[in-house]
Amino acid sequence: MRSKGTGFRAYTIAYLIFLYAPIVLLPIFAFNNSTIIAFPLAGFTTNWFRELATIPALHHAVWNSLVIAVSTSILSTCLGVFAARASTRYDFPGKGPIIGFIMLPLVLPEIIVAVSLLVVLLGIGIELSAWTVILGHVLICTPFSIAILNSAFQSLDKSLEEAAIDLGETRWSTFRLITFPLIMPGIISSLLISFTISLDEFIIAFFLTGTQPTLPVYIWSQLRFPTKLPSIMALGTILVALSITLLIIAEYFRRRGIARSGGQDAGGFL
């Protein structure tokens, strides 16, 4: 078996190089002392990072994105808790179709979500703003939250809650004392994942943002100007470092959740 595995191993490592190639280039050009994004390299500089601090439009965009991502992660995690709880604990008429419909944005092209929301929001006269972006982002993040929280609720033994009720607690205090602490790791990783998705989402924000661009929309507008590219590389480096940090935190909580409920690690997100 071992000898068979080496071929696969080499292939998988090659595949990982393919996956990481663009990301590895990012810091290389971010520190490259040239306005042209191409080889050969011209020397080391931190100018591009320093330049980021001088662009107010970027700072507004970052602030918008943060507000949108934080609101989205909280709202979609709340909606996710309701839906995941209902789907793992209860049987009710129409369960399959209802949950299927809620999960639909997972497989719906984002441009469809974006244009259909745009049509309705403009149709009823709502002005585009950060809030309209949040509406769209919550819609596409909720299925991810549900998927993560579903596994959190599933690994929660139903008899733990029954035991708490049997020992004199009410439904609400049982949720507070037993359910909530035990699904906490799932909630944290749902918050982090929705935050990351919202922070990175472009199409919906592009259609629904109005006059307050989010960070991806800002980046998109800058990609047309070749002189802005090196600082976009610097910005990208910061973003990648940030999302990898967030992911590691999310992964840490997911594993702790599994360890706590005494279960087996079954794999990654999704």
Binding site: P22, L25, D200, P216, L239, V240, S243
Partner: peptide
């Protein structure tokens, strides 16, 4: 390791 690149900025990845 496989999922990490997926969570980094899509726009920038495509641009790269």
């Amino acid at each position: 390791l496989i999922t990490i690149p997926f969570w980094t900025s899509y726009l920038i990845r495509v641009f790269l």
